[in-house]
Design a protein around this nucleic acid. Sequence first.
DNA 1: AAGATGGACAACCGCAGATTG
DNA 2: ACAATCTGCGGTTGTCCATCT
Length: 401
Amino acid sequence: MTVVEAGEVLNLKVGENPLLEDEAKTGYVSPDDQDGETASEKPSGAPQLKKGPWSPDEDKLLKNYVEAHGEGKWNKVQRNSGLNRCGKSCRLRWTNHLRPDLKKGSFDNEEIDKILKFYLKWGPKWAKIASRLPGRTDNEIKNFWNTRIKKTEKQGLPIYPEHVLSQVKQPQQDMNCETPGLSHGKKRIREIEIHDLMDVKILFQHLDYHKDLVVPTKPLKRRASIGSLKISGETKETYCSTDLNYVLARSESVPTGSAIASGYPVELPSVQSSSSTLSNDWLLQCVSASVEQQIHSSIQSTETISSQTTGLLPTMSEISFETLIPMVYPMIHSFGYSEHESSPNTDIQAANLSLGSDDVSQYYQVASFFDPGVPDTELGASFFNDTPPETSFLNQQKQVS
DNA sequence: AAGATGGACAACCGCAGATTG
DNA sequence: ACAATCTGCGGTTGTCCATCT
């Protein structure tokens, strides 16, 4: 990829730095300029990084840089763009102000209700709450909340209106909900909340082995982020399969997000990004088909693989999440780059699968084998609180189908 | 009119998890 | 395996501006 410096975009000459001029104008000097930065951000002898309000010129530089290079690698922004800001500051500015999908203006009633509802359930998980309010930032919501608290306290009003309280029930004990008791500090895990998926219908495939269903499987290290993808002009929610730590499988040795191919457990690649981060590295490692093509091919590939390699016809059915908790594995979205470590053999893939379709080959060239010897992670154990899930409905579901 | 107060918003900081070399 | 670095989160503080006294 060609690196284009933002300075070039603005056609600046060496030595001309509008930011320094701007700094002189604002006169802003942070009280802790002397010791506020890490060594990596402020090497000795390097010019001091600017703090305080951003100028339009700085915004322009940052915007140009992100448009050219994508989000992420924020520390490189400072090094390559001519911006005299630390990476953290750049990320914050982009996330909270420059992102194109930001929703400006005050919160409407629906948003306020959501904030109240989610705060009731999760507490001050601002990022998590923000992820449920498209176009809103955690900082925005946090500010709103703090202001509201002050205001209601002062006026002696209840924080939560009655209609919000009546809507919120006790958190369900589903396996994918983070509950306060399971929270371990500041783990940055974007988790799928099953209740948010209740209305989502997915095309679900399971491999019908005519055997007892066994859950759970070993949780993977990888976690999911929820996001949206444009499919045929329609925005749909998608998610990473590995966040759902259960999979319909015939053996405990088959990990989450896996299928059986050629008699071996195969970990399928899965989506790990949201629309806002489609430029992240992982996606760049994907095959170069469009997202839409990948999804359609992925649907085909799951059918092909299971029927050709197991000799059993897969069962495709449209089932709601409500029914599927927690055994779903949304293969419909399984594409991307498998990053699982401890893969003893990464060369098998498409060749052994003898797939005719180029599309399928594309996807499974990046699939890797799962090593069943990988021990359960601490994360996985704490995630489930060592409590086995409710599985009786699995049999019910089986009878239905 | 001037100072005080408070709300809204922006930005920074420390910490910790994730990633990279 | 380990250290260094990057990234994201939540708490806190700073700034601006409108309103009040």
